[in-house]
């Protein structure tokens, strides 16, 4: 009982003492880098439609995603994306480039354990939850959409 009280008091003391992240500069960097990534995406999309006028808008979106994923994966491979991430935080994690980075980085890291047990098993250690939640939530939304369409 006494231990519990001491631990609570200690935890309280520690949380008051820990250095805090400065929110404004962090948010600002996150915002502008995230914005730049989106701008690049839009640029690629517009360029695709300009070069291939026959391309449907939806296919252009798909190709844009592929281009962004490739760029992020490439930058991860040459050791640049983690530097961007250190600086921008959420700004480079939230866009699809961050997703690409979260799959490429464990693949590189665990290459030493072989193709099957290393790359294939560990590839989704970070991105796994994102995929699970993505699939589950789209199922739920689909179900709701189907129920509404019945009336």
């Amino acid at each position: 009982m006494e231990d519990k009280k001491r631990n609570e008091a200690y935890n309280k003391y520690v949380s008051a003492k820990i250095p805090k992240t400065r929110p404004w500069p962090t948010l600002f960097n996150s915002f502008w880098v995230g914005g730049v990534i989106c701008l690049i995406g839009q640029g690629v999309n517009d360029l695709l439609l300009l070069i291939f006028p026959s391309l449907s808008e939806q296919s252009a979106w798909a190709y844009t995603l592929i281009v962004l994923i490739f760029i992020a994966s490439f930058l991860t491979g040459i050791g640049v994306y983690d530097q961007i991430g250190k600086f921008a935080g959420g700004g480079s994690i939230v866009p699809i480039t961050g997703f690409s980075n979260s799959i490429t980085s464990p693949s590189i890291e665990f290459k030493s354990e072989g193709i099957v047990y290393g790359i294939c098993v560990k590839m989704f250690t970070i991105a796994g939850p994102v995929i699970v939640f993505g699939v589950v939530s789209s199922m739920v939304v689909g179900l709701i959409y189907w129920i509404i369409s019945l009336f």
């Binding site: 805090k20 992240t21 991860t76 994306y81 991430g85 250190k86 980085s105 464990p106 590189i108 890291e109």
Partner: peptide, 17 residues
């Protein structure tokens, strides 16, 4: 890092502590 935390090339931020 690999045993306790994240892959080296993952673009995340380290907390100040």
């Amino acid at each position: 890092e690999r045993q306790y935390r994240f892959p080296l090339e993952l673009g995340n931020q380290r907390p100040p502590t």
